[in-house]
């Protein structure tokens, strides 16, 4: 599998560390109800198909990446840097 890092270019999967689903980006407010934190930390759509998940280019530029890809075919549909993502960070 190869991911195209927006900074480094196309790289082998071994350069990246996977974290998990995009859910981890949507951190609830500190006082959000327990259900929100349970969903944030644990519960997942886990689709057989297109998903968005988080990868870290730790053997490269240290970017966290938001990857859109298909879990059945392994096709990579899009890669963007988490820090530069649409909607932006806090």
């Amino acid at each position: 599998m190869r991911l195209t890092c927006p900074l480094c270019g196309a790289r082998d999967r071994r350069e990246f560390t996977y974290y998990g689903a995009e859910d981890y980006l949507n951190r609830p407010a500190p006082d959000a109800p327990p259900q929100a934190w349970d969903d944030y930390l644990h519960n997942r759509d886990n689709p057989a198909g297109v998903t968005r998940d988080l990868w870290y280019h730790d053997m490269g530029c240290s970017s966290w990446l938001l990857v859109t890809r298909n879990t059945v075919t392994h096709e990579i549909l899009a890669v963007e840097a988490v820090a530069d993502r649409k909607g932006g960070a806090a």
Partner: peptide, 18 residues
């Protein structure tokens, strides 16, 4: 050491990149 660096990078890039 490596784990913490990755963690800091995540917190920074995901929650406070600006």
């Amino acid at each position: 050491a490596g784990l913490v660096m990755r963690h800091l990078d995540f917190v920074h890039q995901a929650f406070c990149a600006g």
